Every structure is written in structure tokens, then in C-alpha cells.
Amino acid sequence: MEDIKQFIESGILELYVLGDVSAAERREVEAMIQKYPAVRAEVEEIERALESYAMDNAIEPSEKQRAKVLNSLVVNLADDRIFTKKETVTEPTVISMRPPATNNFYKYAFAASITLFIASLVVIYSLNSKLQEKTQQLIAANVQNQHIAKTVNYMNEQLGVFRDTSFKILHLKGTKNLPDGNMVVAWSSAKKKVMIDLKSLNMPVNDKAHQYQLWALVGGKPVDLGVFDKVEGDSLTMKEMKPIALAQAFAVTREPRGGSVNPTMSEMMVIGQF
């Protein structure tokens, strides 16, 4: 069956219908037509296609040309002088003609170009698959490198805070609203810098309508130090909050997204004092 398919796709059937084949090729095609119905059906389909093409592209003669031909026929038929009284039988003149030389160059060049085209498609598909594979590998490596870089930055940031003797480390403990909650705050009064450790943060993930807000207690009054989110999974960053020089205690409340002017005491999560 594969040989029949290759024979049909070789282009020889189109050349056979057009009469551009050698005697040996014609006999081969006619033998295949007799033997395989699929070949016969393909030849008939080609003939129908060529006939349809000829009909679609036929040129209709002008009315002037049509009238000229018809008038010529009428005149010739009406003139008896063009007929002889005695029918003369003329031997037909037979002129021997050499069969046209068959040029197979274009046929085989066309077949070779098709083969080259298919081979090129196979090579392009293979190269594209390899390129996509390499791209995925590069993406995975880039993600891994970003994760490593993020981890290194967090460790450097954390070590920088804990090595700086001007920072005081305070562990905030959970309230009745969150008994198991805890949080680490690093504060440098000299640098007026406040850092929170999001990696060690033990608090539930806040919803989209709320955020956590950090407060400092200064002279018995709460001072806003900014809002933050608890995201799913472990975060590898230390977040810098608003600066402050004096503080007796730190606390976190849950507030509407964007924060509040005053803390909601009923939503206090963790608190710690020096």
C-alpha cells in the first residue's frame, strides 16, 4: 500500500494525463490502473480536474468572429462548384514523424524538490523541539537562580540586622485573639529603623479586605508604623517599616486594607515591650 501511495504522489499520473510520459512509463501507468482501483480513481480525478480547469478558463469567441465563421460555412455549402462530379479518391499522404523526445529532467527535479522540502520540515521540527526544551531548561534555571539570590539577600539582610549592635531584637507574643502568634521586630533607636522578620512570622494569612498594621507605643500613645501582609508559604524577606526613634512597646492589629488612624484594640494579634 505504501508503494501505491508513493507511486500516486510521484507526479507521474499528472504527466500521464498530460501525455508527457515515455512509452515505457505509459505502459507502467496503464498496468497500475488495471491492477489498483486507487490508481484508476486518482487518474480519473486528475482528468476531471484538468477538464474543469479547461472549462473554467475557456475563452468565448466574439459575436463578430462567430458570424464570420458561420457565414463562411453557409457560402461553402451553397456553392456547388466546390464539389466535383466524379468523386476522386485521394490517397492520404502519410508523413513519418519522430516521437517527441521525452525530457524527464523537470519531473525528477520536482520530485527531488518535494523530498528536500519534506526533509527540511523534519529538520526544522527537530530543531524547534530542541529549542523549546533548552528554553524550558533556561527558565527553570533562572527561577532557581532567582530563588537562590532571594535567599542569599534575605540571609545577608538578616545577618546585617543581627550583627548591628544598635538593633534591639524584640519577640512579640500572641494575645487572646491569637494565642500561638509570634513575630520578631528589630529596632535601632540610633538609626530610627524598624525591621520585621516575615520568615518567622506566625500569623494567619490575611484576606484581601484586611492587612496587619504595626504600632509603636510612645508615651502611652500608639504610633502607626505601616501595614504588611502575611502571604501563603514562607517569605524570605525582612520588611522595613516606618522609622521611629522612641518606643516602649510594639503591637500588631488587623485593620481594613490600607490601615487605620487608630488601632482596633479588639483585633490585636501580637504585642511585646522592652
Rank of each mutant, 00 (worst) to 15 (best):
S62D: 07
S22E: 09
Q65V: 07
R66C: 04
L121Q: 14
K68L: 14
E25C: 07
A112H: 03
M32F: 04
S266E: 11
R254I: 15
G181E: 06
L178K: 06
T264V: 14
P99L: 10
Q158V: 04
M97S: 12
L131N: 13
L225E: 02
S62G: 13
M268E: 13
A24H: 08
M203P: 04
T115Y: 15
G226M: 00
N262G: 12
A209S: 15
G219Y: 05
S96D: 15
A31Y: 03
L131A: 14
N177H: 01
L15A: 11
E60N: 03
A247R: 01
A140D: 15
K35T: 13
R98K: 15
E87Y: 03
K199M: 12
S62F: 00
P92L: 06
R27V: 01
A216C: 02
M55V: 09
N153Q: 06
L131I: 08
L73C: 11
F162M: 09
E240P: 04
L121F: 02
Q144T: 12
I196E: 03
L131E: 07
E133G: 02
L77W: 11
Y106L: 14
E60K: 04
M195A: 03
E133P: 00
G220H: 12
I118C: 11
Y108A: 07
E45V: 03
E133Q: 12
Q137D: 14
G219R: 04
D3K: 09
I118N: 11
A209Q: 14
L77H: 04
N206L: 13
A24P: 00
V143Y: 09
M183V: 07
D234R: 10
G226H: 01
E44K: 01
P37E: 11
T165A: 11
S188Y: 15
A49N: 13
E157N: 12
T175E: 11
K35S: 10
K134P: 04
K68F: 08
L77V: 12
V69P: 01
E255M: 03
N156K: 12
E157L: 09
F162C: 05
R254T: 11
T237H: 08
G272M: 00
